[in-house]
């Protein structure tokens, strides 16, 4: 059952090494209300690859179809044309080896289940036996820095803790890739820093590939190996920026480095250019 291949922190797999990309997006196009007068093109043409173990952030001006893109990547939405391949297979539904963390943890965590039972859901779906389930639940809860909250209900916890539970649930069945849709947009600034570091640490620990959509350029630079910049809709890929910052990263040191400032400035120009 154990798929977790630990990748030492600071040595993310380089794109192009090993087998093919984990996720491959080619000429993706998504239009809503096709054939109706209200037809609207959200994504015009987007292509990029994500290598195994890589951390890719997607940024773009507001309304750039970031969430639409993520929903296409996860298999929740079917592209109008173009293709998304996950581990070599074209996406039909949400694949087994993929997890998603949504922005709105208060709605995405089931309020009628305790924290443990929430985390248990993907394990039950995967058919994990009860004893192993218990062990796995406490393992992932500890991995996200939560101790004895298993018996609590999600809504009894703070926002930051709830998002940790959501991350734990996403990691429970040991997926190969994690998609995150603005995961830290609903928490306060301090919690946000904590969660950013948490996701970097968890990713290093589990060797997981992460694609994270955000509107926050600083966050994208801080987290990513590469940043995919989308244009305003109908979206195309404006540029894919490689982030050469050393790992492990540090909120204070990394963010105050010169490279960080330059990248930040460059991305800011790209994102605001068309406004």
């Amino acid at each position: 059952m154990s798929h977790a291949v630990p990748t030492p922190a600071g040595t993310p797999a380089q794109p192009g090494t090993g087998e093919g990309p984990v996720l491959s997006v080619s000429a993706l196009r998504k239009a809503y209300n096709v054939g109706k007068p209200s037809e609207r093109l959200a994504i015009s043409d987007v292509s990029f690859d994500v290598a195994k173990g890589e951390f890719v952030c997607v940024v773009g001006p507001s309304g750039a179809g970031k969430t639409t893109l993520l929903r296409c990547l996860s298999g929740l939405l079917h592209p109008t044309t173009g293709e998304v391949r996950f581990e070599g297979t074209p996406l039909q539904a949400v694949p087994d080896r993929l997890s998603v963390v949504f922005q709105d943890y208060s709605r995405s965590l089931f309020p009628w289940l305790t924290v443990s039972k929430n985390v248990a859901v993907p394990l039950k779906v995967a058919g994990v036996a009860k004893e192993q389930r218990e062990a796995r639940i406490s393992e992932v809860l500890h991995a996200v820095g939560l101790g004895d909250v298993g018996k609590s209900y999600p809504w009894q916890l703070s926002g930051g803790m709830q998002q940790r539970v959501a991350i734990a649930r996403a990691l429970a069945h040991q997926p190969d890739m994690l998609l995150m849709d603005e995961p830290f947009a609903s928490v306060d600034a301090q919690t946000r820093f904590d969660l950013e570091d948490l996701i970097l640490q968890v990713r290093a620990q589990f060797g997981i590939t992460v694609v994270l959509v955000t509107h926050d350029i600083d966050e994208a630079v801080y987290l990513a190996d590469r940043v995919v910049v989308l244009s305003s809709p109908p979206s195309v890929v404006e540029e894919i920026v490689t982030v050469p910052l050393a790992r492990p990263r540090d909120q204070l040191v990394t963010r105050s480095s010169e490279t960080f400032g330059q990248l930040r400035r460059h991305l800011m120009e790209l994102v605001t250019a068309h406004h």
């Binding site: 929903r71 539904a93 998603v100 949504f102 709105d104 709605r107 995405s108 859901v121 993907p122």
Partner: peptide, 26 residues
């Protein structure tokens, strides 16, 4: 069913009777 809950159920691959008892009924 809340759309976010519906999406969550889909990404957790909840289907059939388990989806009904875990998500729809509550």
């Amino acid at each position: 069913v809340d759309p976010v809950v519906r999406d969550t159920a889909a990404v957790l691959r909840l289907r059939g009777f388990r989806k009904f008892t875990t998500v729809t009924l509550p």
